[in-house]
Nucleic acid binder design. Sequence first.
DNA 1: GAGTGGTCTAGACCACCGG
DNA 2: CGGTGGTCTAGACCACTCG
Lengths: 272, 272
Amino acid sequence: MADALPKYLQIAKDLQRQIEEGTLKAGDRLPTESELAARWKVSTSTVKDALSELRKSGRVQTRPREGTFVLPRRRPLTITLNDRELDMPQVPAESRMGGGEGRAFRQEAERQGFQATWDLPEVTVGPAEPWQLEAFGLPPDQRVQIVQRKQRRFIDGEPNSLQYSYFTLELALKAPLLLNGEDIEQGHVAYLAELGFVQVGYLDEFDARPPHRDEAEFFGLSRDSLAVIEHSRTAYDQDGKPFRLTVTVYRPRSNKIRFYAGKVPPSVLEGS
Amino acid sequence: MADALPKYLQIAKDLQRQIEEGTLKAGDRLPTESELAARWKVSTSTVKDALSELRKSGRVQTRPREGTFVLPRRRPLTITLNDRELDMPQVPAESRMGGGEGRAFRQEAERQGFQATWDLPEVTVGPAEPWQLEAFGLPPDQRVQIVQRKQRRFIDGEPNSLQYSYFTLELALKAPLLLNGEDIEQGHVAYLAELGFVQVGYLDEFDARPPHRDEAEFFGLSRDSLAVIEHSRTAYDQDGKPFRLTVTVYRPRSNKIRFYAGKVPPSVLEGS
DNA sequence: GAGTGGTCTAGACCACCGG
DNA sequence: CGGTGGTCTAGACCACTCG
């Protein structure tokens, strides 16, 4: 035979095939590592390599001390980055959403037939880290306190994304609801607009990276799972000054991130 | 001590620290696996786990039979998704770029002080796969041939991204340069516009996933490295019909993908 | 030929949960 | 308590490069 695949990839491929063919269905537990090792006459380490490979495909989830399970194929939540309100200057500032935060998250989810929920935000205050200073356009040696609002967001009850919003303490003192560990009914963008900090534009950036330990725990990802997608948004006020930084960490495969330009058929944009 | 980290994470963390502190500099080879095993008094398997973890941070690269090397910190290429020309209808169709393809790739790279090069495209023709039919808005049972143009793109001589452009054979017969394994001087978008297929809008979607074997090879990623970012663009013509599909696979950490809305200070947009 | 990482063996012990 | 995957041992052999 010509250049046989390593055993661990053969095992991974065979399991993948069984999942695709439906022999292993969503929610099923895969054979245990020792069963697979016996069946394939390999050591358990080789099986562990195979399962590690499978986890990276995003089709299975390993829960320590329980086993490895086939994940259901869920319809992903579509996150559209374009902010229709922002693109239409005639809409009053009070009704601008800011895309992806608070009410906008629920509205988008419901339009797509999902139920969106979230925990109360955890508010913490601390000295700025270098990357935060850079995002706020401040010199690297500036001493400034940053307010972090961290929120866990769920779709149909399942962990979907983690959102961190950052503000300077200086701003938060003028907008004290930011310091409350409670929802801001109208959303950050509208609340700040009421106080005169209007978001006239924003810049989004993306990266993919392995999850941190707490993110892996929240999303139920064990070792060697998929990368998460990190989406940073820097919001600018009327003076072109960055006044809000939002970092959203998405669970892989549960979200579809999209952006459009020019004329795209409405049916495409609406179809989930 | 309280809940010590597993050894393999301790080792990874120590190496990471040495890289950050500069004890290990860009281009340096890390100690070999057996050296690390001896130094930490652990088995080589534990060291392999540690290096696997380190590779996921994107700071090192393992080259089989050579060793593990510290990667230089390169300034990433910024890919801006907004198409300024498309957003300005007064610009004639012939000069629209399409963002990220051919000339636009070189222009953007040079503006940021990089040198962009690419291989000649590899053209292949074959039956449509289901996801391609879906992207082109065709029924799943339709029999149609798809032309693939695959191009390897480099920044400063290093592998940067892989771009696959897809067209129906029907379209390619009306635009025969698409079937040539040569560059299209003016770019796909302009060439097709000349022939009456004007891109009036597009829809971008993102995902992060582990690299395929050939992608890992092209990017020089070995086992357990970072995820690649996949960017799909579906382009629509005047009739709202999708006529071009482009999939770009980006090397992680070498690219910064961005998008803006509303008014963002020009200095931010220009600053690479 | 020496040295490298990729693959693999044949286990071991542990913490944790309720299959 | 039994069974699970996470961590780890102490190696082995291989294909390949030339550090």
